[in-house]
Design a binder for these strands. Structure first.
Lengths: 336, 336
DNA sequence: ATGAAAGCGCTAACAC
DNA sequence: GTGTTAGCGCTTTCAT
């Protein structure tokens, strides 16, 4: 990089001290308007821009937010990043992105990286592998504000922003029942994840409300395209096959539709399917997928806003973790 | 943030000078092994970690890469970010993400932000609106290495990494012809974008190779779901409707399939469709979409590698811009 | 083998 | 209204 113009250069050329220049640049009242304009003009002329690194060192802050996220390529997460970047941008913060790739080990390295980079705060959605949270505790011990989003835990006294998984699941299954489904299967996420639990609970309670018997035999662990397709194939072939499916995400739902079609079943006539996420693919699938919108963009915005609020608070005496729930919304299309 | 342990703390507790501690920490040969271990042990005990900001100030570098990108939510771009982050991670660089949201104005602000943040280098894919490049010239004037990817320009003497759009388009159309299509339409991107031009050229030349007449009447500007669907509806209803479509991206291709089905045409029997990108949606559509894989992950990797190479070079006397072309590959599925 | 001192760019308390 | 000085945390030259 080219040698940058510093406050010293301006001071020298104008026969002033660096402090005067510094003050002039930030409209300190003491400075005469003559010097002020002279300084500002020269600064503009030379293309001076304050050295953020020096400022960082002095202020011991970087105006940077660290983001630790499983997989950027997943639509939901990219929507969240979008929301985060939007709020950060508006508040003159920058965002550093670290991917865990769903790996616990890498996630630990990521937490060290955010510490090393001296970010002001951290936003985290942890990996599927993670069930030890001491690396996040380390952040908290360093008094770096952390906000967890989407994938959260009760094990840590930290702020959280999550989608209303329970309500979304409840609505989805309720919808299936109202559409006439009698036997509804649930393709679930791993139960050590909060979203796995909450969505199952919503499914369970919706059945209950309509006096439909809940059976573990209708709950399957299937949250990827491949496993969902395979599982759907198996159970749709059986005599007592389900007539409705509530999948924990859109990809699994699309896989179910695919399997049904391959077996000559019609969607939604023979089998109805609801997903969760409202990804782009949901609108493009055939039939178009009924799904629960998770509002990733909103969620990202809220998580970032919450973090910024914490940053503004500064040293807080008694920390009270906040949990914010982002509404979800059933989007009815043609798969039900 | 908690007050961090510094080299000074260690020096004080051990009755040493900061320089000795500094040297001990980095295994300077002059330091006796006794002090070295003492220092290291205490450092570990206190949880010392070097203050990157101070290092940054001294070294005048941040080990950070700035990324300016139109839209994170687009699958192709998120794949690219993934590739970039992967390489950055392996080389101990961090990535700061700035979205332009396809806005020229915001992109200009983004370039200022990367300057302000004193990133070591910048990766750019510019917005659709951009046709003045002076803001990027400013980066170059500051001798900050810049690598352009995907959306590039000849107007700037800079490194570039692009997909082989021409070859991909050529293969796609060639494939349609070999599958028996006689009348092939092209849904194109705006022609002020290089990708718009290159893909049209590939389409043109593939027709030429097979002695098929090229007609402007079969080229439509349609690179979004909505416009593609509407356009496809119109032209598929006409008597002399195309029997093949080459779309500039997957979304448009999926829209074409949808329109065809809505009009009672079978894909691929009556109409064959090829997309471009190989997004997730392509594999999930029905029928599964034949498309050209753009290898976004690879592209991101290469762009980042190229940038890191420039960073290693340092002050180069005579700069020769490099243009790297990432191969594309036709992925044949069931829509052709 | 270790320490003192200067300096990266900037700000701010303290002089005058 | 402006200058002097110290200091943020670290490295490195120059002493000893």
């Amino acid at each position: 990089m080219k040698r940058q113009v510093t406050i010293k250069d301006i001071a020298y050329k104008l026969g002033l001290s660096t402090s005067t220049v510094s003050r002039a640049l930030k409209d300190h009242p003491d400075i005469s308007s003559k010097t002020r304009t002279a300084v500002k003009e020269l600064a503009a002329l030379l293309g001076y821009r304050p050295n953020r690194i020096a400022l960082n060192l002095r202020s011991n802050s970087t105006r940077t937010i660290g983001l630790i996220i499983p997989e950027i390529e997943h639509y939901f997460f990219s929507a969240i990043i979008n929301g985060i970047e939007e709020i950060a941008y508006k508040n003159d913060y920058s965002v550093m992105v670290f991917q865990s790739n769903e790996s616990y080990k890498r996630e630990v390295i990521n937490t060290n990286a955010v510490l090393t980079n001296r970010v002001d705060g951290v936003l985290v959605s942890f990996s599927k592998e993670t069930n030890d949270f001491s690396h996040f505790q380390k952040l908290i011990d360093n008094e770096i504000p952390v906000v967890f989003f989407d994938r959260t835990t009760e094990d840590l006294p930290a702020d959280q922003v999550v989608a209303d998984d329970y309500q979304g699941a409840f609505q989805a299954v309720n919808h299936l029942i109202e559409k006439g489904c009698k036997r509804i299967a649930h393709f679930a996420a791993p139960q050590h994840l909060q979203i796995g639990k909450s969505r199952l609970a919503g499914y369970h309670d919706a059945l209950l409300k309509h006096n439909i018997h809940f059976s573990h035999e209708l709950v399957f662990l299937a949250d990827t395209f491949e496993t969902a397709r395979k599982t759907a194939h198996e159970i749709l072939r059986k005599p007592n096959a389900p007539d409705g499916f509530f999948a924990v995400n859109d990809i699994s739902a699309i896989a179910i539709i695919k399997a049904a079609k391959e077996l000559g079943k019609r969607v939604p006539e023979d089998v109805k399917v609801v997903g969760f996420e409202n990804s782009k693919s949901a609108a493009f699938s055939d039939p178009e997928l009924t799904t629960v919108d998770q509002f990733g963009f909103e969620l990202g915005r809220e998580a970032c806003l919450m973090l910024l609020r914490r940053l503004k608070e500064g040293e807080n005496t008694d920390f009270q973790p906040v949990r914010k729930i982002i509404r979800t919304k059933l989007v009815v299309r043609n798969s039900t």
